[in-house]
Design a protein around this nucleic acid. Structure first.
Lengths: 227, 227
DNA sequence: CGCGCTTTTGAGATAACTCAATACAGGTGG
DNA sequence: CCACCTGTATTGAGTTATCTCAAAAGCGCG
């Protein structure tokens, strides 16, 4: 698993990820960086950049002293992640699936200096992020387990799914534990919810990580609370 | 209940709020606006400004079709609220306690034009907001009812409390229903949690809206998950 | 002095959790 | 190539925190 990183002006380099055998080459252009493990940055790290996900999946988490963990968000292609508070990152960030990432200097978000168009784009992304997080409040606080899981599948389906005949398929690169910590549930509840959807013929799990949506309408109904 | 509104350059005017009899005069300088009821803006309204709360309390909410409601945040003095997504507001905003508010043109957040210092301030506020919302994820998803309520009281205590001898007092201008919809609980659970804190001698409710914290350490312990 | 609204308290129901066992998959080594 | 081993996922059974429904208590207001 790899992360390819590039700056705005010039790409790029790779960061090796979790467990998978090497499949990609490392391309280094002007920034140089190599990490082992899935780790990308940690809470408290100096936030010099924000990152635009071009491909792959990242995971943003926060952990409390007592060990409770919250997955704040998954960084999917098109997302911009790592918005700093002050000059530090306030989440951990790990690589979940081989990713290509563009780094944007924090400066370019904070003051307009540099490319003003990028400045706008980053700012808009931050505002969009606030809106998305508000949706997620609804999700966490006011939806049942089934609704949460169904909503989650729908989002992934829209954002990363590929059509297969009338159906749509996509992968769940994150573990059940990650999903649980994202939705505020337990892994057992995630698993049970998925099983129910399977029994209803709404989805099929080709493997535990590969979902085939067979009845999108049923899935939408299961998500009810109308995203 | 009133809202005093002013623009950056020049204040101000009043918006009448809920039920309380008139106590304030209306001052209008360059912007003119008058609302009846608690309503301040609604989801879908054109977002021409973001608002800096100088005094009072506002409430930001989202409602799903099925009626489930989520209180996104309470706008307390010092907060900046109403960050737009695109050019629309994506929450409802109501006045909960007589408020003075400064309106900042959305433009000043989006491009650096106008006062660059204010631009910075608004941007920082947006980033701070993202961080605060991440904390709230933790709150919603991973804390027990007691921990949620205690955490909530601590925040209010810090932000709006006034010392009384060794103790601290503050008001709960929002209803139990508002608190419930903010914390993802029911009004009964809020009430029960407060009762338990009372029985333990941690707090006193002089009225249902006025809290006296008698044992801050106990309150912090009750909030456990260490904010 | 009673009416309506909010809050509190009570009792029972339930969704989700916890703990425990089983199944599955991928990688490893004999 | 197959048996094993480890980690993840699924399934099962019983517990519990929180919810729901219902009633009582407070408070402000007319």
């Amino acid at each position: 698993m790899y992360v390819t990183l590039s700056t705005e002006q010039a790409p790029a380099f790779m960061v090796s990820g979790t467990k998978l055998p090497c499949q990609s080459k490392v391309t280094v252009l002007n920034q140089r960086r190599h990490e082992t493990g899935t780790h990308f940055f940690r809470e408290g790290d100096k936030a010099s950049h924000v990152y635009e996900v071009k491909s792959g999946v990242l995971r943003l988490t926060r952990v409390l002293k007592n060990g409770r963990r919250q997955v704040i968000a998954f960084g999917l292609p098109g997302d911009i992640i790592g918005f700093p508070n002050g000059d530090q990152h306030h989440t951990d960030c790990d690589v979940i699936a081989t990713a290509e990432i563009v780094a944007h200097r924090r400066q370019n978000l904070e003051d307009g200096e540099g490319d003003p168009e990028t400045h706008q784009r980053l700012l808009r992304a931050a505002l969009r992020e606030i809106s998305a997080m508000q949706d997620h409040f609804m999700m966490l606080a006011r939806k049942s387990a089934m609704e949460k899981v169904a909503s989650f599948l729908i989002v992934l389906s829209h954002r990363t799914g590929t059509p297969v005949g009338n159906y749509t398929t996509f992968s769940l690169p994150m573990s059940r534990a990650d999903i649980a910590d994202f939705l505020g549930l337990t892994i057992e509840t995630i698993s049970r919810s998925l099983s129910i959807l399977r029994k209803h013929g709404t989805i099929t799990l080709e493997t535990p990580q590969i979902v085939l949506v067979q009845d999108m309408q049923a899935l939408i109904d299961a998500a009810q609370a109308t995203d």
